[in-house]
Design a protein around this nucleic acid. Structure first.
Lengths: 226, 226
DNA sequence: CAGTGGTCTAGACCACCAT
DNA sequence: TGGTGGTCTAGACCACTGT
């Protein structure tokens, strides 16, 4: 193959239904979902966008395994290095998760992906694995107007009633993590009246509706000699 | 060159003093600062560590330009792909900054680089800006053998005496952040005897020597409707 | 064992920057 | 024009996973 193949077109499938591949290739032509070296973006970016699209549209469900690298290379008409650059990029974005001898998997359930890795997961997991008792200490639990920063971060209007929940997470009584939650109040009015010392945020949200909500808290410290 | 070169050894120089290169190469031999494909880490990681070391020790000053990629490939005995993977890695960590037709440059003033945005910085900054009193509560301050995970993360041998410092950072008495620090004990023996409730980790490390040290703590929580 | 990701190389061409 | 990064390929071998 020439170092810069002119074009190729495919759609990704989960490892099960590879049958229709040939037809898909034939019907290609002026179809979208094509990687081309003409001009626009680097190939690896186009590939990444292609996969990301399949994930967000559900063609590649959460937790499902991608076709093998060499297989994808054939379908997309790119080299393995290029493909891997694309997939690695998606890992950084939290869309995919690689597993050595097994394959590439779609991360998260769909809405909880994006941005940094979900450390709350590992908190619960760690607690369970180590047989520790996870508890919470509530620092703040109130409904206040969203500040400018908060509004921008959540994509809502400033002043919108916002439920604030700040907790210290403890393992066996030892402070382990800070949990900072911001939820538009209209999403779940019951939030302000719940005792989060033992109550589960997820439960309240679940019984309140499906409006996707995101809350995060990150702290990092780093030291190095000057 | 064989696909897996046995060993190579060099020292990086800023573009100005390339004169002594020949000699440096000749004196190499059993010198440290060597990338070897024997076993330890991937080549690209070794290269990255090598460059990072030159940056932190000042051999590569902030803002200075690195030798050209092809030049570095020769010196280090690695392919360009591998070298670029190493350099890209350092970009993600904020150590380097690439510039298309010009070269790779060392980023930042020296200590504020590396890893994610330094949240400890912003912790102090926030405290100062809001006129709050930052304090600490020490959860753990001890020297214990490095676990397997810790050893891998820090690139040291398992069992190596490791200084553990876990703190809760408070603003005006309110818990705000968790600070988890791991430092090889031999770097700064005084660490275990210091009161970190008020003492500065940076100060102790600074007075202990220039051995570059990295410590980080990240906590994130994220909630979304199931 | 076969399958899959992880790493590495050598060589090529393109795009940008300075002279 | 010449130097430097940016992208891409084809092929190889190693390491891990699961049957």
């Amino acid at each position: 193959m020439s170092p810069r193949n002119p074009a190729a077109s495919t759609t990704l499938h989960t490892t099960s239904d590879v049958a229709s591949e040939g037809k898909a290739m034939a019907t290609a032509g002026s179809d979208s979902r094509t990687v081309r070296s003409d001009h626009p973006d680097p190939l690896w970016l186009q590939v990444a966008a292609l996969v990301a699209e399949d994930v967000s549209t559900g063609r590649l469900g959460a937790g499902s395994r991608l076709p093998a690298e060499r297989e994808l290379c054939l379908r997309l008409g790119v080299s393995r290095v290029t493909l891997r650059k694309a997939l690695s990029h998606l890992v950084e974005e939290g869309v995919l998760r690689p597993s050595h001898g097994r394959g590439w998997y779609v991360a998260a359930t769909s809405s909880e992906r994006k941005d940094w890795p979900n450390r709350l997961e590992s908190f619960s997991e760690t607690a369970a694995r180590m047989n520790l008792t996870p508890t919470s200490r509530v620092l703040r639990s109130s409904v206040d107007p969203a500040t400018l920063d908060e509004a921008e971060e959540l994509g809502i209007a400033p002043g919108t009633p916002l439920f604030h929940l700040d907790r210290v997470r403890l393992l066996e009584g030892i402070p382990t993590a800070i949990d900072r939650t911001r939820v538009p109040a209209h999403v779940a009015p019951a939030l302000a009246e719940t005792d989060f010392t033992t109550g589960s945020l997820y439960d309240v949200l679940a019984s309140a509706g499906a409006e996707p909500v995101r809350a995060e808290a990150t702290i990092e410290a780093q030291a190095s000699t000057p």
